[in-house]
Amino acid sequence: MRKTLLVFGSTLLFGGAFADTAFASSAISGTSCTPASSATYRHTFDGPAGTATITSTAALCSGERQAFTLVSYTAPSKSFGNPQFVYATDTAAITATTPSITLRVDVPGCYTQVDTVFGTNVINPIVDGGPRYGTTKLGDTAAPGSRSAGVRAWYNGGTTTCAPQPAATFTGDCDGTLTAHLANSPAANVDAVFDLPGGLVRVAPGTTRDVPVAAKQVTVRDNTFKTVTATWTAPSSCDTPTTSPSASPSASTPQTNNPVETVTEITPTNGNGNGNGNGNGSTVTPTTTAPATSSSLPVTGSNATILGGAAIFMIAFGGGLILLSRRPHRGRHAA
């Protein structure tokens, strides 16, 4: 009886321990995560400094992501007003492995607006009757902005009128593209901003920048709300024709030491007067390229005939001398 109770107690003890371990393992493996579409966040925001930090309140599920954007504008007054032109942007995303992000933008030293919003969409420019960020701003009272807890993450301020003085000119390149020459007058009090197909380009007062544009036509807007369109034309420096390798050199082009001749082979006739050897009535005139005759090759033609005659004459003359040397000499008799 005692042995039976001992076995029963051991079973309960180890069985309970196993159950606790299994429960703990289940709790770990079943850790909950949140899809980005319903996740909540908390944030801090400093408009004049152009910074915002956003942190998820629960872990996002693997593969989920939520992007946020911080954007600054030049504006017509220290309170909300239009039109506004983008000055700087920064975008980043919270993911399962990146639960917190910090965004930073430059803020112009004149009238400005700074917004922190859900997503990656940037409105440029902001004009009367145009689109607005609305409730996508963090800290709004309605979704999605209300899904992030914190201060209202937008700012209007500044102490002076923004006065950029941008200028854009263009030159065509020989490869069919354009180069944009962007400038901002030394009298400007803020960076000039140019909206090109490749993105925003800022130019400080009194400076210039050259930006290649891989297109034959481009439209550029700047933060004075002026638009310039340029169309590529071939520069005069590209008009010089390229000499074909098979073309004859002109009088002004020096001859090379090893000129190349074009030799045309004439196809023999087949006796029927059609000038071909294949009987199909078509003329075949293959063209090949061969090096010109060099002066170092053996001499042929009339020069060879003259030298041959001279050689024969020398042989005959030598033979005559041999015959004369072999004539017998008659001895003289004494008296």
Rank of each mutant, 00 (worst) to 15 (best):
P108Q: 09
S237H: 06
P298T: 11
T51K: 10
L321A: 13
T160E: 12
T159L: 14
S296R: 02
V299Q: 08
T159A: 15
A204D: 08
V263W: 07
P35C: 02
V299T: 13
G9P: 00
T34Y: 04
G139T: 09
G158T: 10
A310E: 04
G279C: 09
N124S: 13
T102P: 03
A17D: 00
T120R: 13
S244R: 05
A214R: 07
R332Y: 11
H333W: 10
S29K: 14
G16Q: 06
L200Y: 07
S250N: 08
S325A: 15
F45K: 01
L103V: 10
A316L: 15
A335G: 12
A247I: 06
D90Q: 09
A96L: 07
L6N: 06
I322L: 14
S302G: 10
T89Q: 04
N121Q: 14
A52F: 04
P186W: 02
D20K: 06
P268V: 09
K3N: 06
P291G: 15
T179C: 00
P298D: 07
M314D: 04
K226M: 04
G319A: 15
P131A: 12
V114Y: 05
A215Q: 04
G176P: 01
V263Y: 13
A153W: 01
F194Q: 01
A316K: 02
T231M: 07
G309R: 03
S302A: 15
D175L: 06
Y73F: 14
V71A: 06
T169N: 13
S295Q: 08
A22W: 08
Q84R: 09
E64Y: 00
F80I: 08
P259C: 07
P235M: 14
A290L: 12
V86W: 02
A214L: 11
A183H: 01
T160A: 15
V284Y: 08
F118P: 01
T21S: 09
P205T: 11
C61G: 04
T4W: 09
P268H: 10
C33D: 11
P205A: 15
V201H: 03
S325F: 09
R202P: 01
A192S: 11
Y41C: 05
F14V: 15
S26R: 05
I94V: 15
T69Y: 01
T283F: 07
L297D: 09
